[in-house]
Design a protein around this nucleic acid. Structure first.
Lengths: 334, 334
DNA sequence: CCGCACTGTCGAACCGGTTCGACAACGGAG
DNA sequence: CTCCGTTGTCGAACCGGTTCGACAGTGCGG
């Protein structure tokens, strides 16, 4: 069947340990022996058995990626994080065990305690994320995207949503707008503790208040046809000059709704949002927006985790990295 | 550190093998011993080490999911397959190792020969998919979504794209259309061997010819802003009555383009497409379409694979399952 | 009362790697 | 020529489970 290191050793006329050392390079092996071993390996088509290696080294070279899909979030957005994470992990020599189980804490417990992974990445972390206590007990290296209330012990990466809110309000204030429509994530996201939702909203409202700008805030819908209905309803009100959208589903639906109503951007309405460059290209969104950098966040999470898995545990303090938001002006405001 | 089966055995005052049998139930254990063992397990918080178990049983309880992301395909569509697969796998007791490596054959070789997974699911399989020969050599149970030229030995699931093409042409022919605009996947998808592209196109053209219907076929773009530009160009031609879209990116962009041009559906133009119910809801697509059933296909692939992994190898012949397409009339044609 | 089948448990071997300590062979220094 | 350090290889133990064969104890039938 599949050849083992024993077969290779026999074929090359050496012992198992010699093959192992030839493979790892942890001890010197004479050139001719090494060549004989290499020949045997290619001849037999040998690959070390991952389970056996994991058992011996207590390293699996696998990262657990925990993703939660909520009905009230726009699923395509999640993929923007998963792909760069997968790519970055592979570049570092790790594979990805992707876990989408609905019961997050249980999943973390199960995977972690069975030693299937060397480290864990959590996506879409909530303010009081029930997965965190479990993770702490497991003492597994972990990094995450999304800011929890107690990030102690983990590497946390997230966009600075408060600053994002201020930047967008500033942007519109500078252009003389006195009223802003704000469309946030769904109410349920706030309740669940998706901290990005209120970090953004609080900061935006506060900054607007400091300018004396009036903000009408709406919890955006996420499923069609509710999205379009709601947008139409909001736009029915008179005298609207500016809109800030912090909701993927709404911003993706916006172009067609605006077209259908004959609203011109930016002449009739200034629009600014929050989305990544890739997302904008996918849906051809012509809107000025704060770049959400899923690519950067995902890769950072992997890098930090790899660091944490490979260096002595305590030599490496945890950190919270709130990425500074940058606005991309696509001319949809005035 | 983390407790082993040895610790449990000591704590319960029995031997390792007894604990193992209590866990697996493969031999009878007296009630009181079993209870003592269970108490020890919860007391110590023991979970079997996955690597050790994999080594002993040569079963990992992990399924390898190989996904390829091409720039010329619409990435959100892929997620529709990944999620049901992940869920179905978990229901059957398996976890998912998701591999997105660009070099597919190499990835299959690497994962398979290192014994990391019990079986493999391939997504987005091409006509001459270079991953298949590798898979055959590995003798790994595998199932796939997408029809290859030589499916022998694997369980293959795909939509019946030829029939889908015929259904859509029939639908428009019945309504008296004499000309159809057909928008297909990108040319590069055809060249790469994405068989769904030509299976659909060939059948549609042939059926149209049998009616004497004239078809203008275009390779659809996938990236913005090219999608919108191309659509506008196509729609500039006079006297168009019906359009069939077999391209996710184009159909997602269609509503806003049609609105921007003031084209009413179905009064000015009949539109029919190919997309799943979920996809349609995500983008609020009001178009009559053939349901692509990613959910069903993904779950079938998992079921077949699990079957293949758990039953004697040859008692179980491979099969190709082309799901019968069904059209959902959303009133966008007349 | 003996033999036998059945129940419950144990010890040992095994899965396929890694790693530590031992040691032979060799070359150079004293 | 002896001693010592270096180089290259080996054997054995170990990682943490599973499984097979052995066996003591028990209950039952003849």
């Amino acid at each position: 069947m599949v050849p083992t290191i024993q077969d290779v050793a026999r074929y090359a006329g050496v012992s198992r340990s010699t093959v192992s050392y030839a493979l790892s390079g942890k001890r010197t092996i004479s050139r001719e022996t090494r060549e004989r071993i290499e020949a045997a390996i290619t001849e037999l088509g040998f690959t070390p058995h991952a389970g056996a290696r994991a058992l011996a080294t207590s390293q699996t070279m696998v990262i657990g990626l925990f993703v939660q899909f909520f009905e009230d979030e726009f699923s395509p957005a999640m993929l923007q994080y998963v792909l760069p994470i997968s790519d970055a992990a592979r570049e570092a020599g790790y594979d990805i065990l992707m876990v989408t189980e609905a019961d997050g804490p249980h999943a973390v417990q199960r995977i972690s305690s069975s030693g299937m992974v060397d480290g864990i990445i959590l996506l879409n972390v909530a303010h009081e994320d029930p997965r965190l206590p479990v993770l702490r007990k497991m003492r597994q290296p972990a990094s995450m995207v999304g800011l929890p209330r107690t990030p102690e012990g983990f590497d946390v990466f997230d966009l600075d949503f408060a600053e994002s809110g201020r930047i967008l309000v500033d942007h519109l204030a500078e252009r003389g707008h006195r009223e802003i429509i704000l469309i946030t994530p769904r109410e349920h996201v706030f309740e669940r503790g998706g901290a990005y939702s209120w970090r953004f909203q609080d900061a935006a409202l506060q900054r607007a208040a400091s300018y004396g700008i009036r903000v009408r805030s709406y919890y955006g819908e996420t499923q069609q046809p509710a999205v379009n209905q709601q947008l139409n309803q909001i736009l029915d009100a008179p005298d609207q000059s500016a809109m800030v959208v912090h909701n993927d589903a709404v911003i993706a639906a916006l172009p067609s709704v605006l077209y259908s109503r004959g609203v011109r951007v930016p002449d009739d309405l200034s629009v600014a949002g929050m989305f990544s460059e890739d997302f904008g290209r996918l849906f051809s969104l012509p809107y000025t927006a704060v770049e959400t950098s899923p690519n950067k966040l995902g890769r950072s999470a992997v890098q930090a985790l790899v660091q944490r898995m490979t260096t002595p545990a305590d030599a490496n303090p945890w950190r919270v990295d709130l990425v500074a938001p940058q606005i991309t002006d696509r001319g949809s405001t005035r």
